[in-house]
Design a protein around this nucleic acid. Structure first.
Length: 362
DNA sequence: TCTGGGGTCCTAGGACCC
DNA sequence: TCTGGGGTCCTAGGACCC
């Protein structure tokens, strides 16, 4: 933790509250405090679309991200449904990240609504308060997790949101009160995390938690005490030991340098299943052309094409092909996507089609 | 009321070559 | 005639995250 100068390196994790809904409130102030549900085209009757973001009042009804819109409409009849406007949220996200970059430290963007800051300071809470105050100037709120590494900073944000909860609204509020900020380090890791299920860790989802459970590992403490060899045998030589490390709360102590994106994809779940070869082909042609055009417009070459097919029964498979040479030819990509598509049986009604490309230097 | 869309990374296993 | 390992490339699939 200590290095030249004797100032401590801290990782701060900044996470906006109910981001998409909060951004909508900026242009629809009359909706503040309402159970707003963002998703699909804003029609709660639209099938096969899900909630992207629910405002805290909507969450009080049980509405959650990922829930079908029609379910949300049922559990929250007075919900205000808004179409998802990703371009608008991207713009707001840029504004937030630009603001974060005005603070001392370096910024790693994690998504539309969260970022890590690596900063050398002895007063991380002070900085966190300043960040929350600045975000409040944008008519937005956020929680800030402070940690001695990224793992702990990220998890600290969860505690910050719990601490900052104010009754029904659930918002982490009031930059002056110090709520909405939490510090998680090696000092309080065991006290706060040891008894929690492994799935509480960032990087352990439902599947791995279940497999860990099969090994008798239920809690973070169990994971930290687990035999690394046994973990390696179950999860592989890299993932296994990494899980053990996670159990101890260890993680990167600096942000990652921005990486070049590795690929790009477009997919679509159809309102009704596709059964005709013509319409299946046409959809793949359309998706492939879109992905290829977007990729070429960015000046990138394409080295691999993959096609995903999901049937009515939610059976999902993908096939891919490496190109003989990188290309920026949209027609070539479309042709290859069609050829890959035709490697599938295509004898079942199709719910989703997707086309993905991987970048390659031309 | 069935289960979005867009990413990243890891692992297993077969083919192929030395 | 049979049998080695190691290394790399490629595809398929799984898992995680926001």
């Amino acid at each position: 933790m200590r290095y030249d100068g004797g100032v401590t390196r801290w990782l701060l994790h900044v996470d906006l509250d109910q981001f998409q809904a909060a951004v909508e409130f900026r242009r629809h102030p009359e909706l503040r405090g309402q159970p707003v549900i963002v998703g699909g085209n804003g029609d709660p009757a639209e099938p096969r679309k899900v909630v992207s973001c629910a405002s805290y009042p909507a969450r009080a009804f049980g509405v959650r991200a990922g829930m079908p819109l029609r379910t949300a409409a049922r559990v929250c009849p007075e919900g205000v449904f808004l179409p998802q406007d990703l371009a608008f949220y991207a713009e707001a996200s840029e504004e937030i990240m630009a603001l974060l970059r005005t603070f001392p430290g370096r910024v790693e963007v994690l998504g539309f609504d969260e970022a890590f800051l690596a900063v050398d300071t002895d007063e991380p809470e002070e900085l966190a308060r300043e960040i929350r105050a600045a975000i409040a100037e944008l008519d937005l709120t956020c929680a800030v997790g402070i940690g001695d590494n990224k793992t702990r900073a990220k998890l600290a944000t969860g505690f910050a949101k719990a601490v900052g909860k104010t009754g029904q609204s659930g918002e982490a509020v009031d930059p002056d009160t110090g709520t909405g900020i939490f510090r998680l380090t090696a000092d309080n890791w065991v006290e706060l995390m040891a008894h929690r299920p492994t799935g509480a860790l960032w990087g352990i989802g439902a599947r791995i938690a279940k497999r860990l459970s099969g090994l008798g590992i239920e809690t973070v403490a169990d994971l930290a005490a687990a035999d690394r060899k046994a973990l390696a045998a179950e999860f592989g030589p890299n993932t296994g030991p990494y899980l053990w490390v996670l159990g101890h709360g260890a993680g990167d102590t600096d942000i990652s340098e921005p990486r070049e994106p590795v690929g790009h994809s477009r997919s679509e779940t159809f309102p009704r299943d596709l059964t005709e070869r013509d319409e299946i082909d046409a959809a793949v042609v359309r998706l492939a052309a879109q992905v290829a055009e977007e990729t070429v417009a960015e000046g990138r070459g394409i080295g691999r094409v993959s096609v995903t097919v999901r049937t009515k029964t939610f059976f999902t498979r993908s096939k891919q092909r490496k190109l003989p040479a990188p290309t920026a030819d949209v027609d070539e990509i479309v042709q290859i996507a069609l050829e890959v598509l035709h490697q599938f049986e295509l004898d079942r009604p199709i719910r989703l089609l997707g086309v993905r490309v991987e970048y390659a230097m031309l």
